[in-house]
Computed example of a mutant assay.
Amino acid sequence: MNTQTPELLEVKLTRHEEISPGVYVIGFRRRHDFSPGQAVKLGIDKKHPPRIYSICSGNQDDELCVLFNIKDDGFLTPRLAALTIGDTVYASPPYGTFLGTEEPAWWIATGTGIAPFRAMLRSGMGRSKILVHGVRRLNQFYFSNELAEGLGDNYHRCCSAERMDGVHPGRVTAFLEKRDDFSKDWKYYICGQAQMAVETRDLLIEKGIPFENIVTEIYF
């Protein structure tokens, strides 16, 4: 992600919801237009460095929302999790270059990397999209009902540690390795941890996808 620091503005939380153990959606009134896939920087004050979070709400929603999981060794996420509706946070205007389009594309995510793709879907970009979401535990398929309703058979879930009917066993890369229906003309968006993003990019290149058709957003 782009690490240049935009101006931080004081906002009041209008949403604070734990959607899975240790995983939260928080939101505040949307003040700016944004392109689906962009991010904001969030902080609890202006003294400590903010952190970057992809927007998970649609670009016409009244609230601007982000998704995060608590990092036990982190400074910010435990403090964000302890807030409540009406509390103050500091947020930048939306920014970034990981931008969804109306063009046919694969969306490939792990964990909370699903956030920008949910924003794209809620913004009307679900046509001609294939989504692959990989997680370790079944309770980590965030927004799964909404994604299934919007994408139907083009929504694929992969779980590496648990099993359930309708969910592909194993990692995202194992699922993709078995596929032979990749179009070289489509875009391929990857969002998640660095190792997954690099492995997925290399796999797609080996399958003949041009490098310039692969767009990556790495979560740290």
Rank of each mutant, 00 (worst) to 15 (best):
E199Y: 06
I205V: 09
I55W: 13
A115Y: 03
D62P: 02
T101M: 10
T110P: 10
I85W: 07
E206D: 12
Q38P: 03
E162F: 06
V25P: 00
A39E: 05
A91E: 08
H168N: 12
V172K: 01
K41W: 03
D72P: 04
L138Q: 07
L151T: 14
H168Y: 12
Q60I: 05
F175Q: 13
D87H: 08
L203N: 07
T173P: 02
N145Y: 04
A194S: 15
D180M: 13
G208L: 02
D45W: 09
I26L: 15
G43N: 12
A194M: 05
N69A: 15
Y53N: 04
G113Q: 12
Y155M: 07
S92Q: 10
N139D: 15
S54A: 13
R30E: 01
Y53G: 09
L204H: 04
P93L: 15
G126E: 12
K187L: 09
C56V: 00
G74E: 14
I52G: 07
A39K: 03
D72Y: 04
H16W: 14
F75C: 07
L203S: 00
P21Q: 13
V167G: 03
I85H: 04
G150V: 10
H168F: 10
G134Q: 08
F141R: 07
N145V: 08
E212M: 11
D72H: 13
W106K: 01
M120R: 07
Y189E: 04
A197Q: 01
V89N: 05
T173S: 11
D153A: 14
L80F: 08
D45N: 15
E149G: 07
M125I: 14
D62R: 09
K12V: 02
T110R: 06
C56Y: 09
V135L: 03
G86D: 06
Q193H: 10
G192S: 05
Q4T: 15
E177P: 00
G74F: 14
R127N: 11
A197D: 06
V11N: 04
P78C: 08
A82N: 13
S123L: 14
H48M: 09
N2K: 15
S128V: 00
A91K: 01
E18D: 13
K46W: 01
T84W: 05
A82W: 02
N145K: 09
R136A: 14
L99G: 06
L176I: 11
P104W: 09
G134N: 05
R122T: 00
G96P: 13
P6Q: 08
V40Y: 10
I190L: 15
P94I: 15
E217R: 12
G74K: 06
A148T: 14
C158H: 03
G111T: 14
K12M: 02
P210Y: 07
K46F: 00
I44G: 00
E199C: 03
D73C: 02
R201E: 13
E10M: 14
A81W: 09
R122V: 00
F175W: 10
